[in-house]
Amino acid sequence: MGSEHTVKSFDEELRRLDNMLAEMGGLAEVQLQSALEALIRRDTEKAAEIVANDRRLDHLEAEVDQHTIAMLARRQPMAKDLREIVGALKVASMIERIGDYAKNVAKRTAAIAEMPPVPSAQTVVRLGGLAQQMVKDVLDAYLSRDLDQAKSVRARDRELDALYTSIFRELLTYMMEDPRNISACTHLLFVAKHIERIGDHATNIAEIVHFLVTGEMPADERPRQDESEMTIVTAHTTGGEN
């Protein structure tokens, strides 16, 4: 944070803000980790726990909102201080969203556990692992204001998107092969989509880190490899007429 403010209590308030964000980040990481474990083990009890725990993140976000608004009103911050405070406000809402997606994955887990396993589940777990690492790294980058690490997270979103697109294709294919897979595959597809969105939020946080450190948003277009919106898988029925 550089040199200290003439008004010491301002520094304390900024430190407190950092601590709140660190707590939120830690909690979101744990939620995501648990959600992925529950998914692998088809553990509905744990899934229910995750859903209940999400409330803690919501409360923390509300606290950050309150604290930042009070700081803006009281300190009328400028330059780096302004970026720190506005950045924290935005990052808190992104972490809260990541928590929401982890919760959504847990909710789907309850349904998925009722159905026979789909082969793609392993790939979805791999997707989750990628997202988890991005979240962990971007939170580290945020707390240490590490521009290089933030850039590396932002670059990795491409990989996540590509894997998501391939999962999308795979699941569509299973559904076409056997309509009895549709229910499980649909739930799994939503899980994959939630994880892909977590990656987007990690990327958003990486961009905020860029803004905090340099004062500017990244100039280049963000990498994008999610092609699922344009993906069509055509059915090739066995013994087809054409």
């Binding site: 400028m78 780096k80 970026r83 340099t214 004062g215």
Partner: peptide, 18 residues
């Protein structure tokens, strides 16, 4: 100047630092 000053002295002055 008030969101992203380039010089450290400007930064220190407008944010109320030593």
């Amino acid at each position: 100047i008030f969101t992203n000053p380039r010089d450290k002295r400007t930064q220190d002055y407008i944010t109320g630092r030593f």
